[in-house]
Amino acid sequence: MSREHEKGMSLIVKTITRLTVGLILLYGIYIVSHGHVSPGGGFAGGVIIALSFIHLMLAYGKEVAFKRLSRTVASFFESLGAIMFLVIAILGFTGGYFFLNFIAKGEPFKLFSAGIIPLCNIAICLKVGAGLFGIFVALVLLKLESGEKK
């Protein structure tokens, strides 16, 4: 992967990135999925997931990062997160009111517990991760182009 892409940073940075970027992504998924059991939650986990893609983009240049997560996919995920959160909220009307915790609570300290809270965490994670990645892409590409024009 590192031979064919001459863009980006030096070989040391690329090797370290290749070793660590998966772990960072995995840690973000862990923070999101255990948001109702241990500290963390959708927002922090989503930012960590966005940071793993930003890490990839900083080390390898934008083409490799866009191959993993293109801008169309990112905007799709952001809209999906927002709509998912609203749908979960509206589904509460089946039992009575907005944001009702309508799924069974389950056993405490288990991964599948706490009703709608893990689902809301996943929705917020998609929204925050894709949105912050989009902001970073917009700002960095703006800078690259204004540099090229001079």
């Binding site: 939650g41 706490a114 009703g115 809301c120």
Partner: peptide, 16 residues
């Protein structure tokens, strides 16, 4: 709420 992380239960259930 069934969530052991009370912060999560507040921000996503009580104060959603």
């Amino acid at each position: 709420t069934g969530a052991t992380n009370l912060v999560g239960s507040v921000i996503l259930d009580y104060r959603a």
